[in-house]
């Protein structure tokens, strides 16, 4: 069984929001709901400055607080590591939103249920990359099987010394190069 993961290189990311809109289209989200949030940081004093943009979405944690707090089992982890929400079971109590350390969850107002990045499971099942990866104009994202030692994502993790954004807080399947 594969264990899916993603990597994002903020050195490449130009903060263009293409991934946000591609994701909204793929998942048919209204303009105000997005699975990807953007954080930016400016450092230094003119003219010696630097700037970083960090897009954050569901980190697909193995030790997922959203799953452990969910009172209805609506939030669950698939065998391939993808963390999902079963919208039929979700009561919209937002406990998972409070529990998610990465603020990765959104309220889907049309149904009152909770939404988040699902690693484009329907595309991945057809052997394709997630929409945000495909569309990334800076090739900043890599998707793949973390259990396959030869996968491209594992190579990039090793080469670039990619890290989880919050250490091993939640044993996430998402890596950052920063």
């Amino acid at each position: 069984m594969a264990r899916y993961g993603m990597l994002l290189d903020t050195g490449k990311c130009v903060g263009c929001y293409a991934c946000r809109v591609a994701c909204q289209m793929q998942n048919e989200l209204p303009p105000g709901e997005s699975y990807i949030k953007f954080y930016e940081n400016e450092t230094g004093v003119f003219p010696n400055v630097n700037h970083e943009i960090v897009p954050v979405q569901c980190q697909h944690c193995e030790d997922a607080p959203c799953v452990s707090v969910c009172p209805t089992t609506a939030s669950y982890i698939r065998e391939d590591g993808i963390v999902m929400v079963d919208h039929f079971k979700c009561i919209g109590c937002k406990y998972c939103m409070e529990a998610c350390p990465y603020d990765a969850r959104e309220i889907h107002h049309a149904t009152g249920t909770i939404d988040k990045c699902v690693f484009c499971q329907s595309l991945v099942e057809q052997g394709e990359d997630p929409a945000c990866v495909t569309t990334c104009i800076a090739d900043a994202r890599v998707f793949g099987d973390l259990d396959d030692p030869n996968s491209h994502i594992n190579q990039v993790i090793a080469e670039q010394n990619a890290q989880h954004i919050a250490g091993d807080l939640t044993k996430s399947n998402f890596y950052y190069v920063r």
């Binding site: 452990s68 707090v69 969910c70 089992t73 079971k89 009561i91 309220i107 149904t111 009152g112 249920t113």
Partner: peptide, 24 residues
């Protein structure tokens, strides 16, 4: 406050199926 339950009251039954780990 649980908007989802308002749309779909049936979902409340799943509260009884809750996870062992969920304080709620």
């Amino acid at each position: 406050d649980a908007e989802g339950a308002l749309h779909n009251p049936l979902s409340l039954f799943f509260l009884l199926h809750g996870t062992r780990t969920s304080v709620m």
